[in-house]
Design a binder for these strands. Structure first.
Lengths: 102, 102
DNA sequence: TATTTACGAAACCATTTGGTTGCAAATATA
DNA sequence: TATATTTGCAACCAAATGGTTTCGTAAATA
């Protein structure tokens, strides 16, 4: 199976988990409270995120806190960057045309 | 089935198609030459990309040219933006620490 | 010590995915 | 007009996905 950042953020629940963990490390149980799905389903998503190295485990007694590895998200930013330049150029050119028309 | 930009960019072939179409509109046949998979497989990816409104068709005789709708990619940029700010802040703080140590 | 709690892992299931081959239809060309 | 080309669509298939329930184990607690 594919295991990369793009696969990781494809699922809406996983994007929500990333959003939660961005605010602070959490245990699977704490996360599950935010969703309609079971704790085990959240755990399966966490497994994917761990395999993608988007989160890291920190054991603390019988609890496991999941921390966001924010740098991993950079891969998505790197992918989108050239396209961002494209639509900004497009916008600039449109602006020029509009200014000329004035 | 889920039909959003995140689903669209989850597949590596679709990311490659987006990259190709970014350089200029192409027909499915022309795209298929760049990949190992069949013309029909490319067509199925194009269907997904069309449903996500990442590409638009332009009929020209019996050929169909696919154009990139660059603005759609903005949704990904909007998603990543807050995280970009997070890792930049992190980097700035690290830099401060390193400067103090000097 | 006995029980509860937190968790991952496994088995299972329906649906989706990403590929294939084989059409039919529309357009271009001989 | 007959034939070739370009394309989308349907049927099919194996594998992956996202969920469930059940279970074993380790740690906290009564």
């Amino acid at each position: 199976m594919r295991r990369d950042v793009f696969q990781a953020i494809a699922d809406p629940t996983r994007r929500a988990i990333i959003g939660l963990v961005a605010l602070g490390a959490l245990t699977p149980n704490a996360m599950a409270e935010h969703f309609e799905i079971s704790r085990q389903a959240v755990s399966k998503h966490l497994r994917v995120l761990t395999e993608c190295e988007i989160v890291k485990q920190q054991h603390h007694g019988r609890e496991i806190f999941y921390h966001l590895q924010i740098e991993k998200m950079k891969e998505v930013a790197d992918f989108i960057e050239p396209y961002r330049q494209m639509w900004e150029t497009k916008f600039d050119q449109l602006e020029k045309v509009l200014n000329t028309l004035k």
